[in-house]
Design a protein around this nucleic acid. Structure first.
Length: 352
DNA sequence: AACTCGGGGAG
DNA sequence: CTCCCAGAGTT
């Protein structure tokens, strides 16, 4: 009786035949791989495509990014979200400069000790850039493993995580670990998708338990999600020479360090009558509030924000500074940019 | 173990 | 609308 090709053999044959030609798959430079892996954390491939080449051109080596300013960092990361990832990547780049002479360490343990590099990124960079026999378990791998073995326990809980690790370890092709890890993720992204999996195209469908049980689309099992919190926020638009007044988002709040329109906070529900006092508390300035100019919606983590931006005049400036609304180098929050975009649509003279 | 961080595209 | 994505750090 001839045995079926191994899981890795079938997967790699499929990958060699049909994988996407993505920019980071054309490089074996550990810094380029690292950057791509961090950008891809919780972020779609198409969103990363746009930022990736530009980032690497601006920051060709860890040492280049290690000395980036906060505003440079923000400009390079704009549109990707999770800006903390970028700061951790910079921390990691600084550690590489300080501890390893500017070269990404080829040792798995040293790799894993760098800021921002957890188990997944260590496995991805180590296997892809250096050929180390490490697994790289991400959401795709969790899903493929849960389905192939019909794991019905909560995929994010410890027991399932341990099982998925063991399965990936067993599957891993130690001759081509980097290609294997990418192939597993490619399968999750293109075939074993969260909804409507394309089992007919799957190279390992033959021994997939979930498919045999016809429960592939129901796996993996996830726990209850955090309920959405509705927020009715308000902000003011104060047009001055040189742009509009902006405040820095304080540390400890989402988007810390970026610029927002003066407001009691993007996650703070506000009645119109309370707005002047709350603004004074936050900015130390008295504002005369005018009519609403724009209403925009935005979602951040588990908050659903409806922001009303009012025309206003400021009695003094305090610590607020004027910035140009449409300058891509200014670290406006996405929420603020949505307001500007709306104003440009409804009042075409606004940006000028 | 639970919670936090952004944003957008698919279904 | 809802869900999920090449996760990691903090508490």
């Amino acid at each position: 009786m001839t045995s079926r090709p191994s899981f890795a053999e079938r997967l790699l044959a499929w990958y060699d035949e049909s994988h996407r030609d993505l920019p980071w798959r054309r490089s074996r430079d550990p810094w380029a791989i690292w950057v791509s892996e961090v950008m891809l954390q919780q972020t779609r491939v198409e969103a990363v495509r746009e930022s990736y080449a530009r980032f690497l051109e601006r920051f060709q080596q860890p040492a280049d990014f290690a000395c980036a300013s906060d505003d440079e960092l923000h400009a390079a990361w704009r549109g990707l979200g999770y800006y903390r990832r970028a700061r951790l990547l910079r921390d990691g780049a600084r550690a590489v400069v300080l501890l390893h002479g500017g070269n990404v360490p080829t040792d798995a343990e040293q790799l894993g000790e760098l800021p921002g590099i957890g188990a997944y990124t260590r496995g991805a960079v180590g296997s892809i850039a250096f050929g180390l026999p490490l697994t790289a378990v991400d959401g795709n791998v969790e899903r493929v493993a849960a389905r192939h073995r019909a794991l019905r326990t909560d995929i994010k809980k410890k027991p399932a995580q341990v099982q998925v690790r063991a399965i990936a370890e067993q599957w891993l092709d130690r001759a081509r670990p980097g290609d294997f890890n990418q192939a597993l993720m490619e399968l999750g992204a293109m075939v074993c998708t969260p909804r409507s999996p394309r089992c007919g195209q799957c190279p390992v469908a033959g021994d997939c338990r979930a498919r045999r049980l016809r429960i592939a689309a129901e796996l993996p099992v996830r726990g209850e999600r955090h309920a959405m919190t509705l927020v009715q926020a308000r902000a003011v638009i104060v047009a001055v020479r040189g742009g509009v007044l902006a405040q820095r988002v304080p540390e400890g709040e989402p988007n810390a360090g970026q610029l927002e329109l003066p407001s009691p906070g993007a996650l703070c529900s506000v009645d119109l009558e309370d707005l002047p006092k709350l603004l004074h508390d936050r900015c130390g300035i008295h504002f005369a509030i005018g009519l609403p100019l724009a209403t925009v919606r935005h979602a951040i983590t588990h908050h659903r924000i409806t922001l009303v931006a009012h025309a206003a005049e400021a009695m003094g400036r305090g610590s607020l500074q004027a910035h140009l609304p449409d300058d891509p180098e200014v670290p406006w929050t996405t929420l603020a940019r949505k307001v500007f975009a709306k104003l440009n649509n409804t009042r075409p003279d606004f940006g000028a």
